[in-house]
Amino acid sequence: MNETRKTRVLLAKPGLDGHDVGAKVVARALIDAGFDVRYTGLRQSGEDIVNAARDFNADVIALSILSGSHLPICTRLKVLIEEYQLSDRLWIAGGNIPAEDHETLRDIGVDAIYNTSSSLSEIVAAIKEKTIE
């Protein structure tokens, strides 16, 4: 990892879900842990997210989804991530995601999944570990 460049995390709220408490809390924790974080705000389309990830040259694409729409959202986003050649970025998702959907999400290409009871330290440690090249 380049010593002078902080790891960049794009934190996005896809779809229409307005629950952003968790996303903002994770954003603050990542900043305190030394990451460079850009938060998209609510109601992002797939195109908005891949465009933001490319503009920011994000190392990590992190989605926060609590509406239950994670499968259709990630399925559609996968196509765009490939199209925008962002498949080499760490892709994580957090929120209200039941265990029974984790395998499907991993098959789609999501590298790590966190739920509402995951701790900040766990999320921070995992991203650090996974982004060290």
Partner: peptide, 17 residues
């Protein structure tokens, strides 16, 4: 959410929601 955000059920933004 589509109703709450002003999208019809056949809107692209309503997909999956």
């Amino acid at each position: 959410l589509p109703t709450q955000c002003g999208f019809d059920s056949d809107d692209d933004m309503a997909q999956g929601e």
